[in-house]
């Protein structure tokens, strides 16, 4: 594209912003650590051992999780909005989060039904991760099987919504028969959390994330073609079914693992693509995709920094912060630019 040069400045600004946000994010927390202490801990041996421990084992993995969550949700939101040509679509329209919720609900709420021993073994961190992955995978698989029988892309959207309400109903029934303690645990999962991940977990997360990322990068050309609509895309020789499958697969890998490791984080996936389109004023995915990655990471790091409440012991639910911070930004941009770019 001829005007690609003009985007360079925006990309450099965003990258610098990302770096700043990352440093600020790992510098702030319940324990106050001076900036030189942060750098020592990241790049060498820290003069204070507990500083090193906090940075290396708590703040760094959390910041990296924030990067993966923000960018991953941004990408999957963008993919879904383009695939369904719907500005209201987000990463979870295909029932990924509702599937994960069902899996977690079965483990957390259902533990009473399946007996005590089950409850003890099944509520560790990994079991929630596995339950969420299995749940989202199974729901997505059902959506895919059903939607392979329909030709219209819009029908897939509705099928996804229907599956979401079925799983929602099951979770509702489970909640009705649960104890207050179980309910609280389930609700807390629903708040989302970026912390508490070990390096090992971050490693697994990053691996699956990379596969999803590569799939989305290979879909860039198809996504641009889809901007013209299904008919034009087909007339340009695009294999519609295959591209659709790749796009859905990329989304489910990204959004699925994010939900598994960090909970159903709302809003970011819907808002980041809009924010990016408003700022960059383009529909070209070659520019949008990297921009969404940068924007998603920046916003998520900012939200996490706020949720942490520097120098206090409190951590606010990340899910509330993303909406509290993100929604006003999107409203402000929409009012200023006066029309929704799509």
């Amino acid at each position: 594209m001829p005007d690609q040069q003009s985007y360079h400045k925006a990309f450099i600004t965003l990258s610098v912003l990302l770096l700043c946000c990352f440093i600020i994010n790992i510098s702030l927390g319940s324990v106050s650590i001076p900036l030189y202490g942060v750098f020592e801990s990241v790049f060498g041996t820290p003069s204070n051992e507990s500083w090193g421990y906090i940075i290396q084992n708590y703040r760094l993995p959390k910041a990296i999780t924030a990067l993966l969550v923000g960018s991953g949700l941004g990408i999957s939101g963008l993919l879904m909005q383009t695939l369904f040509r719907n500005p209201l679509a987000g990463p979870f329209v295909l029932g990924i989060s509702s599937g994960a919720s069902l899996g977690v609900a079965l483990v957390v709420l259902g533990s009473g039904l399946f007996g005590g021993a089950f409850a003890v073994t099944m509520t560790s961190k990994w079991s929630v991760v596995i339950a969420a992955s299995l749940g989202s995978f199974l729901v997505l698989l059902s959506v895919l099987i059903v939607s392979s029988r329909v030709r219209d892309t819009m029908a897939i959207l509705i099928i996804g919504l229907m599956f979401a309400s079925i799983t929602g109903a099951i979770v509702g029934v489970l909640s009705y028969f649960s104890s207050a303690e179980q309910l609280q645990r389930y609700v807390f999962w629903g708040f989302g959390s970026l912390g508490n991940l070990s390096w090992q977990e971050v490693g697994v997360f990053a691996l699956i994330y990379s596969v999803g990322l590569v799939l989305s990068l290979t879909s860039i050309k198809a996504l641009n073609t889809l901007l013209l609509g299904d008919n034009y895309a087909k007339s340009l020789g695009l294999n519609l079914k295959q591209s659709r499958l790749f796009i859905i697969l990329a989304t489910s890998l990204l959004a699925g693992t994010i939900t598994a490791f960090a909970g159903p984080i709302a809003f970011i996936g819907l808002a980041i693509p809009h924010l990016t389109r408003l700022v960059f004023n383009t529909s070209n995915h070659k520019i949008l995709l990297p921009a969404v990655i940068l924007f998603g990471s920046v916003i998520m790091l900012i939200c996490d920094t706020i949720a942490q409440i520097p120098n206090s012991d409190y951590t606010l639910p990340i899910n509330a912060i993303t909406s509290l911070v993100g929604a006003p930004i999107v409203i402000w941009l929409l009012v200023r630019k006066r029309n929704l770019m799509f």
């Binding site: 594209m1 005007d3 040509r85 641009n224 013209l228």
Partner: peptide, 19 residues
């Protein structure tokens, strides 16, 4: 049919013909 995305520039849209 009407275009789905009208946020493309004319050049970008015509260039999609080269896909």
């Amino acid at each position: 049919e009407k275009l789905t995305s009208k946020n493309l520039s004319v050049f970008e849209l015509v260039a999609l013909g080269r896909q």
